[in-house]
Design a protein around this nucleic acid. Structure first.
Length: 362
DNA sequence: TCAATGCACGC
DNA sequence: CCCTTTTGCATTGA
């Protein structure tokens, strides 16, 4: 049995809690790209802003067009939200030792043993968790309880905002049947559209499809997933998140360009940030990659094998070379955003010196 | 086995 | 379309 915890409109709610005077006004937390005064996207919006049709992922300028003039626009304070998130996760951890932090605002807990397999006890357990988060951090959240992770996430979604929904085994069929396919975790825009081509709009429609049909369209893994999930049967144990496998940073350029000189600074900045992150994780990388996003929002990537511990100058040299390649292979592309990724990460364990360290794959 | 791409997902 | 950012997983093609 799984309990899924989802903090409501998290970033915007954190801002509301700290600035109560904003609480009844439309509030949006924005990722400013720095291109122009108001370019960027909405990261999180409170429910007042949502009533005007504003939601996460929307360009800030579009949101500004929809919202009244007394609305509040705040820049993301990621480090701060991470701190608040850690506090909440520490509370949640007391409700089951089997827990996985899914993201900054989500966690999954296997509560089977804690509640003795009883869905009634699980409801009380979840209610206590909600109360404790509200009392200690003044934050509202939504919680779903169900026989597996997929159903629990959907239950939490259905409970929003500030809700608690238990879907016990007898209710699974009814709970799933009426939902649109995109309510299934893992079904986004593309998958929804492909399913529509198959005449599938609801989870119930999906539940009538043969797995062979799904395999032809989606490949074996995803086919198996949607096949089982649509029947409420996709189940996997709740496992703690492992060590990071990659670290990346992407920056938006002031203006589109093809000039290496003009983007050198951005590349250096992204690399420095990635290296700092790696260092704080006490990890090293065996691959270095560049991420190019064009004026047409198309993405190109390149990567090369590196010696872990390569110098900054060496890494910059490789990045320039990869960028040069992308540009020459695509003579007409204009750079809009530029990023650096390091992967094939190794945990640096023990006391390392410049010349000798011990490491193992993570 | 690796490089590149695509999809999803969070806010 | 006015368009951020980060990570993980899967697929595909060499």
């Amino acid at each position: 049995m799984v309990l899924f915890l989802d903090l409501d409109y998290f970033f915007a709610q954190v801002e509301e809690v700290e600035k109560p005077e904003y609480r009844d006004r439309p509030l949006v937390v924005c990722v400013y790209s720095g291109r122009t005064e108001s370019s960027g996207v909405v990261s999180s919006a409170n429910y007042v802003a949502r009533r005007y049709g504003v939601k996460a992922g929307m360009p800030i300028r579009l949101a500004m067009g929809k919202l009244p003039s007394d609305s509040v626009y705040l820049p993301v304070r990621m480090e701060h939200y991470l701190k608040v998130s850690r506090d909440v996760m520490d509370i949640a951890r007391k409700y089951s030792a089997k827990m996985r932090v899914e993201s900054v605002d989500e966690a999954v807990l296997d509560v089977t043993e804690v509640v003795d397999g009883s869905f009634d006890k699980a409801r009380e357990h979840a209610a206590k968790l909600k109360t404790e988060i509200l009392e200690r951090k003044s934050l509202k959240c939504s919680v779903g309880v169900a026989p597996n992770r997929v159903l629990a996430k959907m239950a939490a979604e259905a409970a929003k905002p500030d809700g608690l929904k238990v879907v016990n085994p007898e209710e699974v069929g009814v709970f799933l049947a009426g939902q649109p396919v995109e309510a299934l975790p893992g079904v986004g825009h593309k998958t929804k559209s492909l399913l529509e081509d198959l005449g599938v709009r609801t989870v119930a429609d999906l539940g009538r499809l043969d797995i062979d049909v799904l395999e032809n369209v989606f490949g074996p893994k995803k086919a198996r997933y949607v096949y089982l999930a649509s029947r409420g049967l996709f189940d996997e144990p709740v496992q703690e998140r492992g060590a990071a496998k990659q670290v990346s940073r992407i920056l938006t350029l002031k203006r589109n360009t093809r000039s290496l000189d003009e983007v050198e600074h951005a590349l250096a900045k992204a690399l420095t940030q990635v290296l700092n992150r790696l260092s704080s994780l006490r990890m090293a990388a065996t691959r270095l990659g560049i991420i190019v996003i064009t004026s047409e929002i198309k993405t190109f990537t390149k990567q090369v094998e590196i010696r872990p511990g390569s110098s900054y100058d060496e890494l910059m040299r490789l990045l320039r070379s990869m960028l040069q390649q992308v540009l020459s292979e695509n003579p007409s592309l204009m750079l809009r955003r530029l990023g650096v990724r390091m992967s094939g990460l190794l945990s640096l364990t023990g006391q390392s010196t410049l010349t000798a360290w011990s490491e193992h794959e993570s």
